[in-house]
Amino acid sequence: MPQVRINGEVVVNFDGSSPNLLQFLEQQQQTVNYQCREGFCGACRCKLLSGQVSYLQEPLAFVRRGEFLPCCSIPKTDIELEIPK
């Protein structure tokens, strides 16, 4: 079960009860910006500090190296992410 470290603090197991990382973060009471929830608007962009994610749908939004879209991905390994402020 991959572990998710959020903003260098909280560590939570991604136990599969959320279909994607955006819902997972929302369940942890984190505020993440979003719009489409389908990978095409880019509003949910977060930083991926370490680890890897797998995309459930190919993201259409522009994603820079070191960033990822939580709305259409799940962790593939343990990850460390940062929610932009």
Binding site: T31, N33, Y34, Q35, C36, R37, E38, F40, C41, G42, A43, R45, F62, R64, P84, K85
Partner: peptide, 26 residues
């Protein structure tokens, strides 16, 4: 930020978060 520029305003929180539910695609 999406086009590689730095944010210039101090506001970091969405003051009307309810708008997002209207913007969800499905």
């Amino acid at each position: 930020q999406a086009v590689g520029l730095k944010p210039r305003f101090a506001t970091t929180q969405n003051p009307i978060p309810w708008i997002n539910t209207w913007l969800v695609s499905d």
